[in-house]
Design a protein around this nucleic acid. Structure first.
Lengths: 241, 241
DNA sequence: GCCGGCTGTTACACAGCGTTACCAATTCAC
DNA sequence: GTGAATTGGTAACGCTGTGTAACAGCCGGC
């Protein structure tokens, strides 16, 4: 239940990043900063993000272009975006919202105002029913079927495998990042929405429990491989749909 | 997103309260009764109310005074009020409307007439949809049929399943947000119009009761799944027709 | 007024999860 | 190559969250 929302602040100005991070952290959010699109994408790749605060004007790829890319990517198409801009022109607002931003804030703004918008957007984001959106798909791997809408896993012979909430979340993290080494920290973030504390072994234990349910031979795992010193690797190819 | 409107009937005459509650409930509204201003305020404090039906003449604080207080309170200043009065004098009408009531009905009146006024005021108050929209629809899931107008649930084999008011409201909350994890807080808000207090287990108990009536095997629920640390998930796809 | 159903609260049982501990496997130091 | 150190697997345990029976209070029906 301590699923504190994870915000990603993308701004090339380090001072602003720091300021916003501190402020938002003090108000109960988990905040990651990114100075450009590359860092943003890297973070999105490896962590669960609930909302992105995105500066419009940035060197390199600008906010509009990034926002467009976010919307074009299935994994992030639903992630709310709040745009920041130095200019107060109305056209920006239009363009920003047309680009798929959920809200818009003109600099200079008070952190308090951003906080209000963040809360509002998050509330709104969890409001409307999903309907036939991107969420609710079914994923397959090596004959297994994972139903995201029903939170159900079926083995290749069609048997419903009972997973606990934690096992299911962990499996989703793997299935959504297949054939990539995921560190314990990343897994913890993806599956639990928290970051690791020193000597945290909970992921190891959970992986062990999950293997027991989906590996033919848990003692010699083939789907969830251990990468010594690195983390874990989900080896099967995943078919989406 | 649109829930069944929540009406608050304030009248010191218990017979009238009961009569109106039954009638309005049968026509698809959620109704709470209050015998005086104190009860009214208590309800408004803890639940979201869409419209208040307020008797003008009451012992203690009367309707006019209560209406004035409603208008002076920011939270309720926008809540529509329909005044009831035993006297047919025109002056009352004037005073009532000046006091901020949205409509006025002289006793004796037919419940049907009140129903029409309630729908009209709600339509006026909240723009396009509501009453006419949410009320009157029928939703289906896995063979079940939920009649929003009659507040009735039919099982796949056509049998009418008796639900208490609370069970029905909870089910509506689920059906209107299918395939999404809803926190206890959200459910409490959607179904009861109030927010959770620490150690609030009422939703758990109500879910348990609802499962007993709609799950094939309540011990191994498939429609209403528990998400540990998250809340509950209504898994069936809902057809809105 | 009394009765019956509904709802929230409480209490207890049970299962999931994180922590710890211990062991095995691997790597490192020499 | 050998022993030490590091890393990972997992059994065991305790805390926490959830299911639900039992109870009590409230409200409406009569």
């Amino acid at each position: 239940m301590d699923r504190t929302p994870h915000l990603l602040v993308v701004d090339d100005d380090r001072e602003i990043r720091t300021l916003l991070s501190q402020f938002l952290t003090r108000h109960g959010f988990r905040v990651t900063g990114a100075k450009d699109g590359v860092e943003m994408m890297r973070t999105l790749d490896s962590a669960r993000v609930d909302l992105i605060v995105l500066d419009l004007m940035m060197p390199g790829e600008d906010g509009l272009s990034l926002c467009r890319r976010l919307r074009a990517t299935p994994e992030t198409a639903q992630t709310p975006v709040i745009m920041l801009t130095a200019m107060g022109e109305e056209t920006d607002r239009i363009v920003g919202l047309e680009m798929g931003a959920d809200d818009y804030l003109a600099k200079p703004f008070s952190p308090r105002e951003l906080l209000a918008r963040v809360k509002a957007v998050l509330r709104r984001a969890s409001g409307p029913p999903v309907a036939g959106g991107a969420v609710g798909k079914t994923l397959g791997f090596e004959g297994w079927t994972l139903d995201l809408a029903k939170r159900e896993l079926r083995s290749p012979d069609g048997v419903l495998v009972q997973l606990s909430a934690g096992e299911y979340d962990l499996l989703v993290a793997f299935v959504e990042h297949p054939q990539r080494v995921l560190t314990r920290d990343q897994l913890l973030d993806l599956a639990r929405g928290r970051s690791a504390v020193p000597f945290d072994r909970s992921i190891d234990v959970q992986v062990s429990r999950l293997r027991r349910k989906i590996e033919p031979d848990p003692a010699d795992p083939t789907m969830i491989k251990t990468v010594r010193g690195g983390g874990y690797l989900f080896t099967p190819a995943v078919t989406g749909g």
